[in-house]
Design a protein around this nucleic acid. Structure first.
Lengths: 159, 159
DNA sequence: GTATTCTTACTCGGATACACGGTGTCCGAGTAACTATGG
DNA sequence: CCATAGTTACTCGGACACCGTGTATCCGAGTAAGAATAC
């Protein structure tokens, strides 16, 4: 059970985008240089965020990515599931109904208890990540960080 | 983020072993037939449970696997981490300290907030799974199941 | 000076190779039960 | 009848291929800004 490496990338990129002035954009190349990441692959992940409706992309010069919503409406869960998918990690294949020990259908009315427990654990995981927004993250950063982020990001793009 | 398919296998196998009479064993072949699973690969996973100290194995005729502890002391988390490893799914590689946007060390005293949030989510997940024992699972099964399990398992082994 | 047209350079977007870990399989070492035998 | 030695068949345990998913990369379509030009 491993999350893609790119999960960390998009979490930080979204945090960075949220620190820019409203309406400002940052290109994939800018963000890649900002964190020393492979630009083409990072772009692929940002596209996934666009498909998920978390980011908005504009093409052409001065284009790039920006948040599709205010940072208060973007949770960590939305970012994680945009790159990793929303499929639960535990997949019940109903082996209790197969083989010599197959249970009769009347004992399988309810979902398998093991599957339910695993699903509940996944739910509490999701709820925890869904309870934190990008705005909450920024609020906990040292107060000097956002201004510096804007400054450095602007100088990169030759703005 | 996907758990191995074998996770379901070991959860059900542990539940089955817990339903046997104390001291009784079941071989990998028996369990494989019981759930219609590939026997050699299942054996590999059961060996992982032995290394984790959850199961105990005895060789020779009439040998096989049995629980290493009472079912009240075996949690779902121990089973899951035995086959999947205990490494957290989110790995922080400190990209905040790399590239053009690298933060100065004085702003990195505490662990990255994003890493902390992801770690907390993993913790609640682990705690939820650690709060349910194999004994709890059996207690929620229909009352007719354990006797049938013992019967079918015994007839398989030519006991 | 202003509006218009054209060029240009920059952006995203999807299609294409590579590598690692889970999946599936196999054969060998070890052991406990069973059998036959001798006392 | 009982103890003993030998045989046997069954078990786990680790080492060996295969495949799918994430990782990394590339090039093409589209667009908005900017410059040059005509009025």
């Amino acid at each position: 059970m491993k999350l893609p490496t790119s999960t960390e990338w998009v979490l930080h990129c979204a945090t960075t985008l949220a620190q820019l002035e409203p309406g400002a954009t940052a290109s994939a190349k800018q963000l890649a240089e900002y964190y020393d990441l492979p630009a083409p692959y990072l772009a692929k992940q940002l596209q996934a965020l666009v498909r998920a409706g978390v980011l908005a992309a504009t093409t052409g010069p001065r284009g790039g990515f920006r948040l599709a919503r205010p940072a208060t409406g973007i949770t960590l869960l939305q970012l994680v599931e945009a790159v990793d998918g929303a499929a639960p990690p535990y997949e019940c294949r109903e082996i209790r109904q197969q083989g010599r020990g197959a249970l009769p259908p009347e004992d399988c009315r309810d979902t398998c208890i093991l599957a339910r427990k695993m699903g509940e654990a996944h739910d509490v995981w999701r709820r925890h990540l869904d309870g934190t927004t990008v705005a909450d993250i920024i609020a906990e950063l040292p107060p000097t960080v956002p201004a510096r982020t804007r400054s450095r990001m602007a100088s990169t793009g030759g703005r």
